[in-house]
Design a protein around this nucleic acid. Sequence first.
DNA 1: GAATAATGCGTACAACTGTTCACTTATAGG
DNA 2: CCTATAAGTGAACAGTTGTACGCATTATTC
Lengths: 216, 216
Amino acid sequence: MTKESTSRTRKPKRGQTREALMSAALELVVKKAPFSALSLREVTKKAGVVPTAFYRHFPDMSALGLTLLDESFRTLRQMMRQVRQQELPNERMLRGSVETYFTYVRNNRAHFLFVSKELASGTPTMRNAIRREIRMFTNELAMDMARFPFLNHINAEDLQMMAGLVVNNVTALTQEMLELEEIDETGQQEVLITAEKQLRLIYFGVGMWRSDKSHS
Amino acid sequence: MTKESTSRTRKPKRGQTREALMSAALELVVKKAPFSALSLREVTKKAGVVPTAFYRHFPDMSALGLTLLDESFRTLRQMMRQVRQQELPNERMLRGSVETYFTYVRNNRAHFLFVSKELASGTPTMRNAIRREIRMFTNELAMDMARFPFLNHINAEDLQMMAGLVVNNVTALTQEMLELEEIDETGQQEVLITAEKQLRLIYFGVGMWRSDKSHS
DNA sequence: GAATAATGCGTACAACTGTTCACTTATAGG
DNA sequence: CCTATAAGTGAACAGTTGTACGCATTATTC
């Protein structure tokens, strides 16, 4: 991870305090409270630094939050890319995607937890940023689906609706997963199985869908 | 604004301060921050009462939170009852249920918002209470489905999975709805339409489901 | 109407908050 | 090696917080 230390420093405190602050905050969010409940002093204490040092790296707490959010998004997009570069939806690859996704969730528990909490309880700025990101995912999923011959009898609006259905459900399952203890292997396995079944069921529903159906 | 006499006046409040505290807190949660970020003094100020008066009604803030949660649950259960006493799922009554539900959401915006925020960012006690409640809803829905001849070829586990799918999505849509301004009539209408379509799609998927399907 | 319980008020205090400022120290570039 | 800059320190500030205490007022019950 750290690749910018280019000098022989006995006490390598170069750009490292900034990261210490970020991971301290992340840790506190995970094991304590929503980000908005963190105090600047609390974070600096956990980072092993005096309160005023904070200002050398961030103008205020909300800037830290935004940076943290950005970092989380990088994780999310990376995951998204990996899931998408598998083949397009069919019953067989469903399991693979689900596993890839939830492996990511488990390996980046802190980031997902942070985003999940902020989505519900963050400042409007944060909430909007997250929702925009989720909407982007949904759009990309809808576009992927559009490229699938199997689905080209479905209009754009309905594809969006279907993508939304998938994303909603995956989001909910992610939160469910995050509630489990990290150790609870069997619980996580259950969520995974449920996820796969639910997505398969959606897949069936999509197969039955007719966009020209009257709905008024 | 406040025209109360300056110093030693007592306002004729009977059991009414307690409620003032509760609705003050609820209001603050709605328009400001997660409950955990509220301060006792803030709440009492908004309720038009001196800080120490708080202790005449609650031992501390978290007790207020629990009470608020309880109140919200009463709303939720009442809604659930009303939705359930309609006929069982078929394509025709879907719209009715969806409308009943979201009307409730709109009419009890504050409570739903409170629960929604606490679900993600509340204390473990709160989160667990809410999740238990949601699980109860899911179970009841699964039981309702089980009584439906149309579905009696589906085993209990899969019924649970399906009920979970519905609840997950309704939950997500509820949060989406709560993000909209109260005035945004067209936005709310859109969510409603999407909700109906998504549930119909699930309905189709359920129709295709075979519990004996191999899934490994 | 007097007694008792319930409720609200004001003061007080210690703990914690964010932020300022002047200061020391470490590091990088010349 | 010297120096300019970046990064960390400590003291101090004004606000806010939760809560304890005693007193004042009201509501209720006899």
